[in-house]
Design a protein around this nucleic acid. Structure first.
Lengths: 345, 345
DNA sequence: TTGAAAGCGATACCAT
DNA sequence: ATGGTATCGCTTTCAA
């Protein structure tokens, strides 16, 4: 365990300095200089020397030692991203996009999954904090306000997405317009000619779900459409789903909305178990689409977070905050949807 | 861009030393000491002092500065993991598992996605190399032998998974037994009573696909089952799939195998387009299951890499190599399968 | 059992 | 325009 080998006799800034016949300071200067529009080095060094230094560095294959640089500057050029589960399609996509953007901006990204558990969230925040990240993009669990506060106390910027933690100040937010998303779901079903829409959710105080349901109800009422919602206990949702859907169909409901990914999954399981046909027996709108579900179940419509946009907004906001030239604010984004086929061939 | 604030006046080892009334060296010593079975500190310091130091460190909220430690030791306690797409379920799961294992072992993990493109792979390797990772776990693209060699030249350990790069020496491998996986697919269909099995793949030299097809053929021949395979051009696979499947069904094929994730996706699209029913018109075995596809399309069976095992073997092998107490070898693992329902309700 | 001190490599202040 | 040098926090050798 102890005797891990020390590796790679690397090219250091000193080697470059010697090879170029200048001082270490000058090399550091030039290598950190910003570039002008014409590619000039914006520093006090002469262009000639600057070019020679850069060329030497390249020739020797020099690469800045991150640890040393980080130790000296207090910055690591690393971002911490925390989600509930990176193997979940939606989060996976957002993480990938953030990673790409961060790479282009010269940042490294480290990810962590919480499984939606407070303790895991806290551990990850600590871990990332102690590894010296420069900022956070997080999809929080409920009740992790203290952990966020810990980040803030270190003066590090945080951007929240996917779920809000109301009441926190000094952080950025990139959130879906959930009420609009709810309206969107109902609109899809109305366009398919559905006459009586149902919604299933579990009991919760998560504002996301409440707002989505409210949006559904408003849009339905606006058009005088019957709208019925069933609220299950969270623990027994999976089990209760079958009877709830069965009753709903008996009562003449011809369309159902599952307002989150978890509910969609349980709901689709129940529909399979009941042997219902989509859209024959029931039209379905789910939320937060799974990978390729359009291929495995092309008759289900989905309302989604636009993952690319979420990633872009979150990253830009964080980067601006890190660079000190932009505010942390709240950005509300519009839902995206994919329509399922209405007809089976 | 330049004036990012330097943050967090942290508790340093010096603070701990002063507060505990000992020297910096002693603190470092104790804090890096291994623990005996009874929790004793295995270092020359007296247990009393050791305990006092540890207690002081905790009280002050001390955490080792990673940059400084890394600069001094040349180790970063960071692992680099490279896959083709982390938002793909299978890779997402493997990454998550590796992350968990790494965390438990005190390592940080950084991920990168290549989209199966050489240049991206090379860039990621360089990026990880220059950020000082201690080792790599990678699912390679074709033709990145040079990049792997670059890692090896730095004396860093590499473990390959998912796909092999034959001919490379001095690396670890965790690979699926692809021939067995092919046999497994045929066995599933035989159990469902299928009489004539087809397989679609694209033209390639990827050993994975070839071996899977060979396995299928062998198993079919072993039981005197007719087996027909169609080989499409990679670029036009998506387009050609429809007619190929159509012809296959006309010719009396009652079961089809899609021997990779990409082929499964295109294949399922085509089946949807043709309006074929599974398993009414056709039984299907796909490879490398998507997230929740069992819910959206419960009638398809899948042969998979056991993601947890792949993650575990890869990580353990790498960790042992880093610690210098274990070889980098080739580990072949058995396929896993999930059965689709044979009957629609 | 404990401590002093020499770096690791890069940055940035201050001279020249 | 260029260079000398203190310093970031930690590990580790050597001496006491």
């Amino acid at each position: 365990m102890k005797n891990r080998p020390i590796v790679s006799p690397d090219v250091t800034i000193r080697d470059v300095a010697e090879a170029a016949g200048v001082s270490i300071s000058l090399v550091s200067f030039v290598l950190n200089a910003r570039r002008g529009p014409g590619g000039e080095y914006l520093c006090s060094a002469s262009q000639k020397t600057a070019e020679r230094i850069v060329e030497t560095a390249e020739r020797l294959g020099y690469h800045r030692n991150k640890a040393a640089s980080s130790l000296r500057t207090g910055r690591s050029d690393t971002l911490g991203v925390i989600v509930s589960d990176i193997s979940n399609t939606c989060f996976g996509q957002i993480c990938r996009k953030i990673e790409n953007l961060a790479t282009d901006a010269g940042f490294l990204t480290i990810f962590g999954s919480t499984d939606d558990r407070k303790e895991n969230f806290r551990q990850l925040v600590d871990k990332f904090l102690y590894s010296g990240v420069d900022g956070f993009i997080v999809a929080p669990c409920n009740g992790v306000e203290d952990s966020i506060a810990k980040i803030l106390k270190r003066d590090l910027p945080v951007v929240l997405f996917d779920r809000d933690l109301p009441g926190l100040e000094g952080i950025g937010r990139v959130l879906l317009d959930n009420e609009k998303a709810g309206r969107c779901a109902v609109r899809i079903l109305r366009n398919q000619g559905c006459k009586h829409i149902g919604l299933v959710r579990y009991e919760t105080e998560i504002p996301t779900l409440i707002a989505r349901e409210a949006g559904c109800r408003k849009e339905a009422e606006k058009h005088g459409l019957p709208f019925t919602s069933a609220i299950l206990a969270r623990e027994t949702m999976r089990r209760d789903m079958v009877s709830v859907l069965h009753n709903a169909c008996e009562e003449g409901i011809d369309a159902i909305i599952f307002p989150s990914n978890a509910i969609t999954v349980d709901g689709m399981s129940a529909i399979n178990e009941l042997g219902y046909e989509i859209p024959g027996d029931l039209s379905v709108v789910g939320f937060d689409q799974e990978d390729r579900s359009e291929i495995f179940s092309p008759w289900v419509s989905f309302v989604n977070q636009p993952t690319k946009l979420v990633a872009e907004y979150s990253f830009r906001m964080l980067l601006n905050a890190i660079d000190g030239n932009g505010p942390l604010e709240t950005k509300i984004i519009n839902p995206l949807y994919t329509l399922g086929s209405r007809i089976k061939k």
